[in-house]
């Protein structure tokens, strides 16, 4: 807690979330600094998605505080929309808008939320598509693209709002193996460009390469956190060791 306040972009204090009687998040404390890349991993149902979605209030938390770039998430709609336009999120299932072209998917929010002129929004979109390596797909519909291409469009769509933070919820787990690399490469480039990223992923090669910090979730709690070296070479908790051995042994690829 020694970093100056402006250095911290996400601050979670004792965040709790219940689905009915089910206690999905049990007191999460976490701070993320500007430019940091945090990778969250853990077993299915441990609350990773719930947590990352709480950061832009796609899920509401019932206790504790979440402060994003100085704004506390509360029921105030204006706050929520302000925070959301500063945070990009990429979903496991892409969630592109199937009735709009790639270009329209990307420019919609900049035009209607940021009030950019169409020409500026389209120029930015083209730049992003070039960064993602798919400028030639601009005028196709999402349904005409491969999964990997769709996910890169989704990243471009989120980036078009020029967010301060990017959230990724298992961005590669719905992809065929041969498409995972192209998406991970785009994410690595983004991480190196200095973007603050919170990534739920079990791509351990990716984590090892770009994560500043890794966080292990289990049953709605943070069980362990540390740098990739600490987590991979000297995990402190039994559950972390067990989980890592399960995901690393059968399918070590990179």
């Amino acid at each position: 807690m020694s970093a100056p306040a402006s250095d911290i972009i996400i601050e979670c204090r004792d965040v709790h979330k219940w689905f009915g009687h089910f206690h999905a998040l049990k007191g999460i404390n976490l701070t993320v600094k500007r430019g940091e890349v945090v990778v969250i991993f853990g077993p299915s149902g441990s609350g990773k998605s719930t947590f990352i979605r709480a950061l832009n209030r796609l899920e509401e938390h019932q206790r504790g505080q979440i402060i994003v770039d100085g704004i506390e998430l509360s029921n105030d709609v204006r706050h929520i929309e302000a925070v959301r336009s500063e945070i990009g999120i990429v979903f496991q299932q892409f969630n592109l808008f199937p009735h709009l072209t790639v270009m329209q998917n990307i420019t919609l929010a900049p035009i209607w939320v940021r009030r950019w002129p169409k020409s500026k929004a389209e120029a930015t979109a083209m730049e992003l598509l070039e960064r993602m390596g798919i400028p030639e797909q601009a005028h196709k519909f999402p349904g005409q693209l491969s999964g990997g291409q769709q996910q890169r469009v989704a990243i471009a769509r989120a980036l078009a709002m020029q967010p301060k933070i990017m959230l990724f919820d298992e961005p590669t787990s719905a992809l065929d193996p041969e498409m995972i690399k192209e998406v991970l490469d785009a994410m690595k480039a983004l991480a190196r460009s200095g973007m603050t990223m919170v990534v739920v992923s079990h791509e351990m090669g990716f984590a090892r390469e770009v994560a500043d910090r890794m966080i292990f979730f289990d049953v709605g709690m943070i069980v362990e956190e540390g740098s990739p070296e600490q987590i991979f070479s000297a995990p402190q908790q039994e559950r972390t060791k067990l989980f890592l051995s399960q995901i690393l042994s059968p399918r070590r690829m990179n």
Partner: peptide
Amino acid sequence: RGQFEAAYALGLNGVLTMLFIILPQALR
């Protein structure tokens, strides 16, 4: 639900989400 969430996550408000994302697809 993902269509609503993707729209909200981009900062679109309820009206814009309905107008540009949900209604065009639902009506179709």
